[in-house]
Structure formats: C-alpha cells, structure tokens
C-alpha cells in the first residue's frame, strides 16, 4: 500500500515536470512563430498564403487566427500579434490608443472585397439602388412587391453588429442608420449565405468571396457585383482589406507580406474570391 502510494506520488511529480518542460519547449517555438490575427473575411487568404509561404521557407513558422477585425487590431495594440488583418480601416480612436501604448500603426492594403447583396435564386428582383437597400434594412421597405418583385414579406438577414463585414456594410450602404430590430442576424458569412439559400424571401449580404451558386447577387446602383467592377471601383459596395503591423515590418514578417503582395500571392487572393489590387 505504502509503496503503491509512493509510486503514485512519483507519477504526479513526473507529470508536473513533463508539463513544465512542454511549456518551456512551446515557449521557445513561439519565439519564432509569426502570429497573424483578425478578420474572418481575410482569414482564408492568409491561411493559404501562410501554408505556401511555409512550404517555401521551412524555417518560417506562421500561426493564423481568426476572431474578427476588432480583435486583430486590439491584439496588435496589446502586442499579442505580429500582423493584424482587418476588413475595415483602422478607427481614429484605435490609432490614438496605439500611440498611447507606443505603437506605430503601419497600414498595407492587400486585396479588395466587394460586398454582394444576395437573394434567393427564385427571386425575380435583379437590381436595387443603395437607397432601396438602406430602406430594406431599416424597415421602410418590407415587401418584395415594393421592388417590383412577387408579393411576399422580405426576410432581412444581417451580420452581428460587431463584425467587420457589418461595419463595412453599415458604412457603405446604411449611412449609419440602424438595422430593423427584427432582422435575422448570423455569426458568419457562410451562415448568411446558408440562410438566404434556404429562405425564398430573404435578402442578405456577404463578402464577394462567399458567393455561391445557391444564392443570387443583385446589381447595386446598376452595377453587377463582378471582379472587374470592384477592381475599377465602379461597384459601390466595395472595400479594401488591410494588414496592419507595428512600424515597418522586417524579417519574416516583411517577407510574408511581400509574398502576399506578389503576383503569386495576389493570385491566391483571387482564388479565394476576392479581387487583387494589381491594376
């Protein structure tokens, strides 16, 4: 009995030592890892780019995390990330905060995203103006017949108010007016697309990269949501996607960002459904 309990005790100690060692090892590894954190819109591009970059540079170690644009920028401010990704421009108050904590925010646009306004494929409405979009989302237009479609209640689908996509949509389409309180609210681009795809009366908005054949994008102010239109800045609901660093990047961080901006990197941007910034 005594012997066995002694063995158990030893096991405990061993376990504790092993855990500590593991921590130490991961701490060493973390020294070399580049952390990229932020917008879920930008995430797929960074993910693919990081994989290819690491294949080419075996000594580099990049850890990609989501969390949203706000989280990314907040992490840059508290120095827990090397690169913040964002689907919106950094806010003035965030820049102020950065200055306060001695961080020199460096902004680099890496892609353009068009926000597509989507409806169910059976919907006969093919185009909307920005005013109409605003009136749908604020509750002034409630029936498809008001837009020349078949009679039926409009089911408004929006994103959670703190997502980067919402902020961009709010800025580009809503004039900062409030979305009607009974709008369905989804936590991701995919969830919006899914909801619109299975709801004949629905209208929603997603990043251009999340367009699927199961939903239909409408023309906004007479412009179709296409790559060319977004690139030439004719499509009204478009926005730049950014990465932010603390000061001018150097070392692997710089090389990684350069890779994204290279021809090869911008091809990845396109493959993920965004629009490249090479004009």
């Amino acid at each position: 009995m005594g012997k066995r309990s002694f063995t158990t005790m030893t096991m405990f100690i061993l376990l504790a030592v092993m855990t500590l060692t593991a921590h130490a090892v991961s701490a060493v590894a973390a020294d070399r890892a580049i952390i990229v954190k932020g917008s879920t819109t930008v995430l797929p591009v960074i993910q693919v780019a990081a994989e290819i970059f690491m294949d080419k540079n075996p000594e580099a170690n990049i850890s990609v995390q989501g969390g949203g644009s706000g989280v990314g920028i907040a992490s840059l401010l508290d120095k827990t990330t090397d690169i913040a990704t964002s689907s919106r421009k950094i806010k003035p108050e965030e820049i102020e905060k950065a200055k306060a904590s001695g961080i020199n925010v460096n902004e680099i646009p890496i892609a353009i995203d068009g926000i597509a306004v989507i409806v169910h494929p059976v919907n006969t409405v093919k185009a909307m103006t920005r005013t109409q979009i605003r009136e749908i989302y604020t509750g002034k237009i409630t029936d498809w017949s008001q837009l020349g479609g078949r009679k039926g209640k409009i089911v408004v689908v929006t994103r959670d108010t703190s997502s980067g996509t919402f902020e961009a949509f709010e800025a580009l389409a809503l004039n900062k007016e409030k979305v009607r309180p009974d709008a369905l609210s989804s936590a991701s681009n995919q969830a919006v697309a899914q909801t619109v795809a299975q709801t004949p009366g629905a209208v929603g908005y997603v990043g251009h990269g999340y367009l699927t054949p199961r939903v239909k994008a409408v023309a906004v102010d007479g412009v179709q949501c296409t790559k060319q239109a977004i690139q030439s800045e004719k499509y009204p609901l478009s926005r730049y996607l950014y990465v932010y660093t603390n000061g001018r990047p150097s070392g692997d961080v710089q090389r990684f960002i350069n890779f994204i901006l290279s021809k090869e990197g911008q091809r990845l941007v396109e493959e993920e459904g965004f629009v490249d910034i090479l004009k």
């Binding site: 706000g70 989280v71 907040a74 959670d160 980067g164 009974d182 709008a183 609210s185």
Partner: peptide
C-alpha cells in the same frame, strides 16, 4: 419571430467587442 437569447448575444459579439 426570430429571437436573440442572452447566450448567443455574448457568443456572437464578445469576439468583436473592443476590450
């Protein structure tokens, strides 16, 4: 009617709310 219970509000917004 669509609704937004307390738990899902926290889950959906906490990630994006500025600390």
């Amino acid at each position: 009617d669509p609704v937004r219970p307390m738990t899902s509000t926290i889950a959906a917004e906490m990630g994006e709310a500025v600390m």
